[in-house]
Nucleic acid binder design. Structure first.
Lengths: 192, 192, 192, 192
DNA sequence: GATGAATGAGTATTCATTCAT
DNA sequence: CATGAATGAATACTCATTCAT
């Protein structure tokens, strides 16, 4: 994998050629809209997400959004897909310690990714589409982590370890400044 | 401690005589309103919090809310104070293992407390009043946990352990079904 | 007459023994309320007149106002009666020049009296009660002025002179800083 | 000058091509809205000005108003600009007597123009935007009148005369039926 | 007389969405 | 594709008034 893409979250840029967000190659405008929405969510949450702001950010009229997406729901779904795409490539780190270090670095470089993920976790409780996306993501995440534990030759309760890592990562999302010490302690406890 | 009060979160009930939310004994109606708002947030989030719904839940006209609270902001602040009051009595558990067991039980009995806390964590990013309440709560939480670690005679990185527990609890808030295994693993790692 | 009473417009004071505003000797509280309302109108106009502000100014609960006045309409009527009482004693000045000098002085000492009168002139267009009060006041004013013209031995169009004085006074109400020059020119033209 | 435009204040009509209210050619809808608001103010004052009524008068949904104006404040500002535009062409009358005759005629044909001006004079005390518009208008008015006095070869206190005319016009605004006699007397006194 | 709780009609404003051009 | 006009339901908040205590 590569968490490449994160670095290109700048304003107005187009995501990579792998942006198959809603079932096909996404047009430039669609990608721009999703990314603008992503930035909005990172700033004001889903609570403050406004189509007019998204449109203004992209530089088009707000009614033009409906030429690219049927409605707000679909844009939110696009944000969910996009956000998990930015964190889902966990496996390639090789070791648990490497993975945690990678996450800590990402938290520092692009904390908004984790903020949006936290927003999505909450929204998933009410929005079936987001719930489905997040469930899929969680399954992948669990599988990746289990593999990592096995590679590490970790003994003991693997399932518990996996869930603990997931919980710690989620819990650290909203307080990035504690990421270093939390991941450090976690790695110390899990892999010695 | 005692997380008493949690069990009485039922619809329309009045909280106990210790409900000193804003610096004095809160009137019955004010408490009812805050609790109704709390329930609403647990269900639809701050995103979906509507004064009309709160009023309907309490059984009064929505304009009467403004007789008790100046506006929505103050009700939200009341919810924040109320919610942290329900989880802040951590210290009395005696041991870290006991504390985690207690939290697991609470998560099962009253998961909405944790959902609201997660909502508050996100809202704190935009709402200075909520941010202040949550910061105060976090400071107390840290102090309680540090004490718990010392009582346990825990060796090693106490600060890291405290932050790890906090992160794990926050991370588990949104997936209560993993609480048992996560807390079990965590206790196993931290206190042997 | 005497425009005495103007000096007693201070906060909370009771108006003179002639305060037969709505048909009887006005109780202290009623007078306080009317005067507080008068001050409010001088500041924020009828547009911004709020019963709660009046009550707060008097120092009572806003619902208590309805023990003294049936409703807002009646308080407004009281303000109208009170305001014209403060300017209606025109005749005693002896000469037109003296009267105009007197008005200029009053405009300087208590400009709010004229502001409220202007508000009343506009409100009279929509409020029959105020209209009736102002019509009565205008009739008295005309009679007083006509007498003044006759005493002065003024020749020429007396009616025109009277109406011109009234118009000039009304026109100057909202720009008190021009009162001196306007009244000076007017006196020069009318009485040589 | 020409106070043309006044005659076209009828319901729903579009003002002439010279309606440069906010610095450019105003869209038809914006002009319609301002004119409807103007009519409302003439009838019920700023005190009774309601966006819903304006919208109903224009024949659009009340939320559509916000597509053309950010809020009520801006509509009020538009009314101020519009109203002074209807009376600001004073200078072209040639003589003071001609000017006063013109005003008397206008007062008879379109008294609402003067009612709104009186409302604006009062509102200017609380609304900075309106205050600025009215101050500008007053300065122009004074300059026009001074010019008129000079053309007439008027002797004596020109400034006093100008202020007296202004006061008389303002004072007559609320009692149009006295306009004839007041202006007649005024002309008699000022230009013999 | 006085108070606090409650009401309900009303008020500007917001916002996703639709539609004709 | 894109725009601007328009919509209508929703939203927090206001305020005079009523009523039980």
């Amino acid at each position: 994998m590569s968490l490449s893409g994160v670095g290109e979250l700048g304003h107005g840029q187009v995501i990579s050629s792998t942006n198959q967000l809603v079932g096909g190659v996404m047009g430039d405008r669609r990608a721009e809209i999703v990314q603008a929405a992503f930035r909005q969510v990172a700033t004001v949450g889903f609570e403050g997400l406004r189509l007019r702001e998204i449109a203004a950010d992209v530089g088009i009229d707000h009614s033009t959004l409906h030429h690219h997406f049927p409605g707000k729901k679909e844009i939110v779904a696009g944000v969910a897909e996009y956000a998990i795409g930015l964190t889902s490539d966990a496996g390639s780190a090789g070791t648990l310690r490497g993975y945690l270090a990678h996450l800590a670095s990402l938290l520092e470089r692009a904390p908004e990714v984790f903020v949006v993920t936290a927003e999505l976790d909450l929204r998933a409780r009410r929005d079936p589409v987001v719930r489905e996306v997040m469930a899929r993501h969680l399954a992948n995440w669990r599988a990746s982590l289990r593999q990592l534990f096995e590679v590490d030759g970790s003994v003991g309760d693997v399932d518990g370890g996996v869930e603990l890592v997931i919980a710690a990562v989620k819990g650290v999302q909203l307080a990035p400044e504690t990421a270093g010490v939390v991941f450090g302690r976690l790695a110390g406890l899990l892999v010695g």
